[in-house]
Design a protein around this nucleic acid. Structure first.
Lengths: 329, 329
DNA sequence: CTGAAAGCGCTTACAG
DNA sequence: CTGAAAGCGCTTACAG
């Protein structure tokens, strides 16, 4: 059996309270007792039972990550693991544990969130995605449970979130292309359920507008997800209609599919731009230009803002915008 | 404030013990009391405090995953997230929570393991890698803490592990190549610190031996990690020496680098085989043949065997071999 | 079938 | 500077 605080107290000839104080290091304890207790602690290999401590402090110093079903689509995409790494870096540095749960659907996410929140398993929750009419966000707001989101929610009031400036990233990319003389730009996008999809589409439209170009709705194809197949079919549809001078996409995987369609149908490629700058991008033929979203930083700040809230630090901001970088290849 | 078991007891006019029994559903409780209690539970939105329960039951129903520093090298590789998905599927199905921790080094892994084990944060630990003279394994064995490993450990005595048959997978691949007439096969491998690296190398050597071919040590290059750069440099080194008739690698990423070296130096490619069958493989030029290791299943069984041990089920096996599939492209 | 009591292993006012 | 006591919110023998 592992030693408890009582065992240490007895061996050191002090009370459990004193041992507890020595360990928390925040009371005036005489140097002698402190040393004596610490020696016994070492000798008995004592380590406090965190569960017992949690029960008293009403905190688990644990963050819960809800990984959405979309992660499966995005296996080819290191996005989620990069975000999780960022979360992990900040959390571990600050003594927080991390739990995660994979969800099969939005309903399943909600179920998982409930079990985290109602059982007080975690102190705060991080959502890796933000949907339209997001039930998870709605629930967490209603029960007033601390959380942060990767991806700007529809209604930002009272919520902590981090995101890229998706509008601007796409705006700049399209602006750049048009300036290079490619004025007939097609758009291949992902799910409308995600706010970032709409932001990117808006950025595309506005950039064209700035140059006095009216977006041709037939050159805009949106998809239920980010698969290679969707990219392929979208490009096919576009080529059936007309050959544009360039293509922008909201995800590298879509771009890969589109590239394949170009190779198979056109037998040559037209300029195309990806999004997320996945490692696969540089291996494409030709190498794919892409917009790097710095996923790890998204996770890092999602954890940082949430932990600051949990610790009641003065929060200057309830959101953080991570910069994007255009990677030209 | 959330309702406690006392609140429910008072409102239902029973004792806390009775409420507890109703909730655990495993004692003879009269149907009437049961219904009455359940109604109050719903009414008050009562949910048991898991921390308090954990303190009593001396279990957290939580598994801890230790993600090694190698994960960073392997961002391009969905291996880890696939394994984590597999772990998650089995665990969630069986009512276990999951924690993870990213480590910066083997020392850091050990530190993280200690905090999980000594604080009784988790009931069991899953290691995602198995090294030579693995300090983590050694520690966990010494303190007799339940754990399982993805990857066969050096000493399998008393440890739970899952793995592919790495020897055989490579043996078959090389055997197949040689039978096709490519007898001068080079080998590009990963870190010798990992047992699977050695297993794959052994498989290569034995397959050659079976065909009466003596392995040329100059055609065998091992690397500190699985990066594209290592693959590139290894291939360069081999080509400086001689042009082999085919190449096998222990990881797709190594193969990608090797392919690039062929393109840049040779201006044509020689047959090459990857390992892990990452999504990138099919996008290569030419598409890369690879050995699929079914990563998700590795995680699934790592969780399954560990949970069976935790629940004292009769364990017929303390290890499980996940099959591999040769994917020819 | 149900309740009173003890206890899991800590922390933290309160008192001295 | 240190200790005795209460209590966090549960579960589980024990007794009836």
């Amino acid at each position: 059996m592992a030693a408890t605080i009582k065992d240490v107290a007895k061996a050191a000839n002090v009370s459990p309270s004193t041992v507890s104080r020595v360990l928390s290091d925040n009371e005036k304890i005489s140097p002698e007792t402190k040393e004596r207790v610490l020696n016994i602690v070492k000798e008995l290999h004592y380590h406090p039972n965190i569960t017992a401590r949690n029960l008293i402090t009403k905190s688990t110093r644990t963050l819960g990550i809800v990984v959405p079903n979309e992660a499966e689509d995005l296996f080819k995409n290191p996005f989620f693991i990069q975000v999780m790494t960022g979360i992990s870096k900040y959390s571990q540095k600050n003594g927080y544990f991390i739990m995660y749960t994979f969800s099969k659907s939005e309903e399943d996410s909600l179920k998982n969130i409930k079990s985290y929140a109602r059982g007080k398993i975690v102190d705060g929750i991080i959502l890796l995605i933000s949907r339209k009419n997001d039930k998870c966000i709605e629930y967490l707001k209603r029960i007033n449970f601390p959380f942060s989101i990767v991806g700007r929610p529809e209604n930002t009031k009272d919520v902590i979130w981090v995101d890229n400036d998706n509008f601007n990233a796409m705006y700049n990319a399209v602006d750049r292309i048009v300036q290079k003389g490619y004025t007939d730009v097609a758009f291949i996008g992902g799910s409308k359920e995600m706010n970032m999809s709409n932001d990117r589409l808006d950025g595309y439209k506005h950039a064209l507008k700035t140059h006095g170009i009216v977006a041709d709705e037939n050159l805009i194809v949106e998809n239920p997800n980010f698969s290679e197949e969707c990219g392929f079919e979208s490009m096919k549809k576009i080529l059936d209609y007309r050959i544009p001078s360039a293509v922008v996409t909201t995800d590298d995987i879509l771009a890969f599919g589109a590239l394949r369609a170009m190779h198979e149908i056109l037998h040559y490629t037209i300029p195309i731009i990806g999004f997320n700058n996945t490692p696969l991008a540089s291996y494409q033929n030709p190498p794919l230009s892409s917009i790097d979203i710095n996923s790890e930083e998204l996770g890092y700040y999602a954890a940082k803002l949430l932990i600051e809230k949990l610790e009641n630090k003065e929060m200057t901001n309830t959101h953080f915008i991570v910069e994007t970088n255009f990677i030209e290849r």
